[in-house]
Amino acid sequence: MDPLIKSAKEGDHLAFAMLFKENYPFLVKYLMKITMNPDMAEELAQETMAKCIQKIHLFNGQSKFSTWLISIATNAYIDQCRKQKRENKWKGQEEVYRKLKWHFESRNEEWNDALEALGKLPVDVRVPIVLKHYYGYSYDEIGAWMKISSGTVKSRVHNGILAVRRELKLGEETEGRHTRQRTTK
């Protein structure tokens, strides 16, 4: 096990601080991708670190520390979404990606339609797509973090990609031809 993690487990504040500082940009960027909201990403990163301090005794060192952080962050975000839904504060999927789009525009960066398509997906579909196709985690790992079966993760990723394809109008022509049958002389 990493000596920093060992010291953090023994209660060394400085070791904890160094671990967090090292992983902070990675964590915030991951949260930005799933929340599509830079402010919420920073807020959740702090919540994730707080949970990490409380649960450090559960970290067994079998995976990377960053992977462990991602699993805690994923749960924190899903919990927050559920809470917002319960309190009827859910603003709808339409607004999710607006903040990120605004950040892109303010930095004169070109906005990507695929991000918009991703932002329109429900949270429980967007998160596994990011984890699978951007970070390369396995269906089993994602399923364990989200407390669902790996088969469910697989179908959510598959349906999510289909929805992105539809949104980006990829393969629409051929699909249209497939559904219709044409008669020629």
Partner: peptide, 16 residues
């Protein structure tokens, strides 16, 4: 088509 969509998503996310 799936791969194209995945590639576009990856491209967008790498901008983040």
């Amino acid at each position: 088509h799936d791969l194209d969509a995945i590639h576009k998503v990856q491209e967008g996310l790498s901008k983040v």
